[in-house]
């Protein structure tokens, strides 16, 4: 089983308080493709360590968008 992970930092817009941060961290944390996620309200970003063979950064953005926030890849 591919246990190697990759990490990416997504830009997340629409969060204004810690409960938004916690909701995103909880929801993504439960995703089988996500190993670790750290969301920064100040930076408006989410640092995600994920299993590339299970999920892609673009899919991570889709999950966040599905929750009603905006997410886009860096660069």
């Amino acid at each position: 089983l591919g246990t190697n992970t990759a990490s990416t930092t997504l830009n997340i817009r629409g969060m204004t308080c810690n409960s938004c941060v916690k909701t995103i961290e909880d929801t993504l944390g439960k995703n089988s493709g996500v190993k670790m996620i750290k969301v920064s309200l100040a930076e408006q970003t989410g640092e995600v360590e994920y299993y590339p063979n299970r999920i892609t950064p673009q899919m991570l953005c889709d999950v966040i968008e599905d929750m009603g926030f905006d997410a886009f890849l860096p660069g």
Partner: peptide, 9 residues
């Protein structure tokens, strides 16, 4: 709990 959450809804 805040404007961000209602915005998401």
């Amino acid at each position: 709990t805040c404007g961000g959450c209602s915005g998401a809804a």
